[in-house]
Design a binder for these strands. Structure first.
Lengths: 225, 225
DNA sequence: CATTGTTGCAAACGATTGTTTGAAACATAC
DNA sequence: GTATGTTTCAAACAATCGTTTGCAACAATG
């Protein structure tokens, strides 16, 4: 692929529209008219709409996964024999995402929303594509999480990782809307970087909570304060 | 509306298909063929596809919101002057959801997934409908959360509530798949109730984390352990 | 009996979807 | 110049979408 002007314009338009409206709610005609290219250009350059969706993800994830891999290398080298802490592991992931060179200032939040949509919208082809392409850095992240929380049983850790994933994917996928609401309610401006910086302590604290299961608060004796 | 057999069959089929595939990915023809009713029945009984989507939510949320309201009444009566704790507030919400009479054993997880989809899929009409219909119990829950976390600033509390929402909606919406994965990996069976009992301590700990923003772990000095 | 209002049904409606086609436009090489 | 391979373009393709229509089936009421 010669990386023509047309290809980039399609990718840019598709990325933005997918993030705004979801995948199946975005038609090729919307994309091509926003990109100011002919309708047939998508099928010519990418082959199908599904392949275009995958290409949008690959354009961000491929450079990101090698950046992340190097960041994990650095982290483990710095720590020597002792495994990295939970906070360090989470922050390396977050920082790697934040530091990625963006096409626009909303670049990261756009892509975070796409990642969130990839989880919630049941695009089977996309799930398989992401699993096949990026299983390595994902598996490494999971290994680091395990070493950073040796006090948790495998079952406890499993569920809490899901809770973390959920909080992250959900928040990031709606980050634009949530920022707008906060701006209207309290007049506060927020960056994606700040959201991430708030998310990490929340996740780390939840991950290290002392009670794995809820102690049901009864009438007389209240649980915790 | 006479609550005919047909209406219920349509609602059952729609609820399940929407949860499986999302709203716009589910056609009326799928719904009516699964419900074994005529295609025109949806527009006859509900008026439009959007009205059907709203009806699916109303069928669960209307009884749930009054149940929740009574549960909050009980909680505040038990606590007297002192505001309920965070754990208590979270658990009352969780328990009210769990105790709701379900149409099937997967009823709650189906509906949790629908709630998650309502947030992520940009269905403007649904957002407005939910806000108009159920602003009261939602606002009351927010008030209780505020009184239970007086140490948090409004901005901190806002974001952490979003994190809680995300972890909950995401986990519950995928609870079936997540339970299957856990069963295959570790051979452990899990109930929705147990997931909820694990979720509450995680959320409470995250909500009460000491650092609102991340303290970047530097090379020499690592943040927390 | 006839009348009326409700529900069920097959068929069609116009609109929109992703994809394909065949020719025009273009650049590059001989 | 001709020939070749790539890219663009308008137009059409078949399929599917939500919705509407006209009529049959049915129960209830007079």
């Amino acid at each position: 692929m010669a990386q023509s002007e047309t290809v980039d314009r399609i990718l840019d338009a598709a990325e933005e529209l997918f993030a705004e409206r979801g995948f199946s709610e975005t038609s090729l005609r919307m994309i091509t008219s926003k990109a100011k290219v002919n309708l047939a250009a998508v099928n010519y350059h990418f082959g199908s709409k599904n392949a275009l969706i995958q290409a949008v993800f690959a354009r961000f994830l491929t450079p990101f996964s090698s950046t992340l891999d190097r960041a994990f290398d650095d982290l483990e080298a710095r720590c020597g024999d002792t495994p990295p802490t939970l906070n360090q592991t989470l922050w390396v992931l977050t920082e790697s995402a934040i530091r990625m060179p963006q096409r626009s200032e909303r670049g990261l939040s756009i892509f975070m929303r796409l990642l969130g949509l990839a989880y919630t919208q049941s695009q089977g082809h996309l799930r398989k594509f992401l699993e096949q392409q990026y299983s390595n850095p994902f598996g490494r992240f999971m290994r680091l999480l395990k070493e950073a929380t040796p006090q948790l049983s495998a079952v406890d850790r499993y569920w809490r990782i899901q809770f973390m994933l959920g909080a992250t994917a959900f928040t990031m996928s709606s980050s634009d809307a949530l920022r707008d609401i906060l701006h209207n309610k309290l007049g506060v401006e927020t960056t994606v970087q700040e959201i991430a910086a708030r998310l990490v302590p929340f996740l780390a604290a939840g991950m290290q909570a002392s009670d794995p299961l809820m102690v049901v608060p009864s009438l007389g004796k209240t649980a915790s304060g």
